[in-house]
Design a protein around this nucleic acid. Structure first.
Length: 112
DNA sequence: AATTTGACGCTTT
DNA sequence: AAAAGCGCCAAAT
């Protein structure tokens, strides 16, 4: 978890704590880790970490979305459709634009 | 040890 | 309002 050579681990830990039916943005993860753990994290790193790990069995990577609520284009599990379907199954609502309803589903109660 | 990479986000055109 | 560019920074090669 703690830093130095474990920024990825910190990202995984935080992502793993996102409850079902909630989503979080890459930028929020990066900002939270930077603010609370003093880690040098950029939004790209968050995405990079998940892409490298691509372990959707242990980590709910489908709950990580863009800041505006749109989904990643390079999602590994089966594309955006699969990710969106998963989110819907968890009760996440979407706007008419096909984006996640962040106002309702954004996970703001970040903690370790 | 140096260079490339990469699920983003903000600023500027 | 929409599109393009730039910055970001650890990890892998």
């Amino acid at each position: 978890m703690n830093s130095r050579r474990g920024v990825f681990v910190a990202i995984y830990s935080l992502v793993a704590k996102v409850p079902k039916g909630r989503v979080i943005t890459y930028g929020l993860v990066a900002n939270f880790l930077k603010k609370n753990m003093g880690l040098e994290v950029s939004p790209r790193l968050v995405g990079f970490a998940l892409h490298k790990n691509k372990d959707n069995k242990k980590i709910p990577c489908h709950r990580i979305v863009f800041k505006d609520g749109s989904l990643s284009s390079k999602f590994a599990f089966g594309g955006i459709e699969a990710q969106r379907r998963k989110l819907k199954e968890e009760g996440i609502t979407f706007t008419s634009d096909g984006r996640v309803n962040l106002k309702k589903c954004l996970w703001k109660d970040l903690k370790f």
